[in-house]
Design a protein around this nucleic acid. Structure first.
Lengths: 196, 196, 196, 196
DNA sequence: TATGAATGAGAATTCATTCAT
DNA sequence: CATGAATGAATTCTCATTCAT
């Protein structure tokens, strides 16, 4: 389904990431994109069928990254508590290095008229949720995590607060250290979820 | 500072809310607006100086609503626990009746180029946070809430999960009952924050 | 033909002059005008039939001023040489105190589509030319001025250089002293036109 | 710095000149321009970034023309008197064949809000002045021109009267022969400037 | 006299996209 | 693969003017 990306496609995707990082999704115009790469606008259409397809592919890339990285951390043989910490920490690290990814993921409101994109975002969030639920389930069984709240709900609270943190970081123009604030939030989360 | 709105302005604001509810902020064009009201585009400019001013005024209206409603609930003489419940419940009720408000508030990413609007959103969020912190502080003193996490962090977790709930509801096209899901989330939140 | 102006009309004309002085003829919009006076836009139309009529009336006012002032100075019983000096000096003095008049007079290019205005400007220039010619004729007869160039041509040269001076002053944003530069130009003119 | 113009750009510039010639600068709208060429409005923007850039380029073209033509005539090895005659004659000839150039140059008042354009006009006028001053200086040294008035002032008088002539021609709707009237003015100028 | 509301005609741009070469 | 040219649909906003009250 997901074809291999050509070099040019990767180049376009990189420029996409750069542009979004600098000026939000609104800065992602075919014109900006082509100028950034040094080709004409029509050249872009040799490599992607439409602007939407570019975002689609970008979201697929992000999804693949997330899928791999999260799954790896989720499946390590550390205790659930450590795995949770690893993943949340990774989330902050990862967005910290790729602010554009944060923007793309957070801009869901913008995809209102583009079901293809909305579905992508949705699927990413579903995946992340599933990962969290798994870990939480494990942690409950091992007695690490509290048992009085459904894993689904706990996952929801975690994702919501992580997301808000990233959101505020993005709104602030990325001008605080996401990893530091994120670490603090992580402490809060683990305290909340701990069994006693 | 905030002048009384004329009837026409209210009408425009209503149409704004309607349009955003139907098609997102991107659907809020002067043309759509004027057609919706049944006047010409230029007529709009007799009542608002610019499209941005319309959104600005809408955000001001929302802020006034929120300020009043939240403050009232925060200052009641119920115990902190009840006040927290009241406010969160009110949040879900309120967005449930005004889906557009959710969209407007959640679309912060869209205001990247419009500092006036971003500032509005920011100020609303600051206010809400302050309200939560107050209540949590009270609840800590009365022994209702746990004391091992800073009020700031707790407020953050609450806001994050509430926000995510609203976000998902919006993304779903408003096709689940926000009040029901919200009530469940509220239960989770209170369980998490309870002392013991 | 020229009716007496009402107080309101004078007020509008004053605002017109002010606006043009500040931002050129393009700043003369009915909106600016009405805001400046403190009435609504439609109120303007109680006093003038159209924007063009305002400019028309302004030009008439200017013309009346010029007619009176120049005629008075032209008909004094000083020698031609002195009368010429008086008038040119008066021109610079007068525009110096009313920069807007300079703008209105110099903006002839803008009236391309408004014959009524063009005609006004034309008639003012004709009048001024006539005055100059008269004085020059007198000066020739009295032997003050050179006789080898037609009065018409001399008038033309004088008017052209005076006009260019005013033009440069206007373009500079009125930031040099028109009277000083004008005095110097006047010296040049009199030297050129003198007999011997 | 000045790039070569493409054919389309030249075509647009020609249409610009034509439109201005017919209806003044106000007739220069993107719509008129595109209709005149037979393309859509947006097509214009592939060749020029903005309406201002079109005028800017036109002024640059005019400047280049003037620079070359005047410089060539100024540097010939004729006597100063002849060179002066050549240049003034050329001015009238040149505007006579390109009435729009006259309009563009004379419309300085219109560029109040566009510093880029004003600067262009200014620089052209400075150049012309410099040329005149050089010739006049030469003519003074050779004893051809009068020595009792500064070259700067003489240049000013010449430019002012030439400019007024062109202005009146433009205002008249180009309905007299600029070359004939210009020739007469030139005679006046030379008589005025001659040594004795 | 004045207001408030509205109009209609434009104006300059922007953007994703198409197509012949 | 890439370019250059063009399109058409939008978009925000401006301006002089009209008209009922």
């Amino acid at each position: 389904m997901k074809k291999e990306l050509t070099d040019r496609q990767k180049e376009i995707l990189n420029a996409t990431v750069k542009l979004i990082g600098e000026g939000g999704i609104q800065a992602l115009t075919i014109k900006n994109l082509s100028h950034n790469i040094g080709v004409t606008e029509s050249a872009i259409y040799r490599h992607f069928m439409s602007r939407t397809e570019i975002l689609e592919t970008l979201l697929d890339t992000i999804k693949k990254n997330i899928t791999n990285s999260y799954a790896k951390r989720a499946q390590s043989d550390k205790i659930a508590f450590e795995r949770l910490k690893d993943i949340v920490t990774y989330q902050f690290d990862s967005f910290s290095s790729n602010p554009s990814y944060a923007i793309v993921i957070l801009s869901d409101g913008l995809y209102q008229n583009e079901p293809v994109l909305r579905e992508r975002i949705f699927s990413i969030m579903e995946f992340v949720k599933m990962i969290f639920i798994q870990i939480i389930d494990d942690g409950k069984q091992s007695g690490e995590f509290r048992d009085d709240i459904s894993s689904n709900q706990l996952a929801f609270v975690i994702m919501g607060s992580v997301r808000l943190m990233i959101n505020q970081w993005s709104l602030s123009g990325f001008n605080f250290d996401l990893r530091i604030q994120g670490a603090e939030l992580l402490k809060t989360i683990t305290t909340l979820i701990n069994n006693n």
